[in-house]
Design a protein around this nucleic acid. Structure first.
Lengths: 147, 147
DNA sequence: TGTTATAATTAGCCTTGTCTAACTTTTGTT
DNA sequence: AACAAAAGTTAGACAAGGCTAATTATAACA
């Protein structure tokens, strides 16, 4: 059932989530434009995501996340925001932070993500790492997807 | 000439560099074992790298980096070590740091790398970022390649 | 209500990167 | 010097992901 999503499918799922959060419909066309790919690529991806039970689709009306899809998408998005905030805290520009977070969100180990969470939980001046503070990053608003 | 290496080719180049630095020969077999791939994959990669003028090959004796190849490989390796050190400084275990550095080294923007260098240049206690200290990471000894 | 424009899908191709199986070449041991 | 073992290459399959071109389905407007 949860056969480990590819980076690519994670991106599609994430984008669908984002569009829906913004109150937009996520039609094949919308997703394609948002990710700078062509519609047939989206169709293929959606077929896969449907197989995995992560989305449903009403042709011409849009793609919706299932319960399971929500969970996965939210997790990816949280990673994205965590990483973006982290990079910005290091002084990286918003644009680069967003672009790099985009890549990193799919590949980092759980351990590294935990250490970064700890780092972010630490006061701005930044003394030392505090192993016991877990901060959950805020939900998310929008985002520039930089293919 | 420098047609932008793929992640995969960067990995091959990097591994060849590492083997040579350790004084080992980098025969197709050695590279394959080190990267946990099969020999035909290496042969293909080496063909590409030769086309790009990054390596030369004496069959059965080993692959050598050209001047240009050296430069590229060293750059990748420096990124790797910088990232690994950085992650370790965040409290990530050596193993995870190495594995994650492996992925990140191919994808991060120049800007992010610069900010990380700055962060690393800052004293251990970690006050605030110092824009003007550039530290070059040490050469490199060995490394666990985690496919 | 029909016609056109837009959305979606299908079919088929391309590239990258991996693999296995089969074959060739070299090495090194006796 | 001969031959087995090891190294290398070639050929061909396959999967993932993207694309274009062509076709089909729906929407929307006159």
């Amino acid at each position: 059932m949860d056969a480990k999503l590819s980076q690519s499918l994670e991106d599609y799922l994430e984008m669908i989530h984002m569009l829906r959060e913004e109150g937009k419909v996520a039609r094949v066309k919308d997703i394609a434009d948002a990710l700078s790919v062509k519609m047939p690529s989206v169709t293929k991806a959606v077929v896969e995501l449907k197989k995995m039970g992560l989305v449903t689709q009403e042709p011409y009306a849009g793609v919706e996340l299932t319960e399971a899809g929500q969970a996965v998408a939210a997790a990816v998005l949280n990673r994205h925001m965590l990483l973006k905030n982290f990079l910005e805290r290091l002084g990286v520009s918003e644009e680069s932070a967003d672009k790099d977070a985009c890549c990193m969100e799919h590949i980092l180990s759980a351990e590294t993500l935990e250490r970064i969470e700890e780092f972010m939980g630490t006061p701005k001046g930044g003394r030392r790492l505090n192993r016991f503070k877990r901060t959950m990053r805020a939900p998310v608003k929008a985002r520039n997807f930089v293919k």
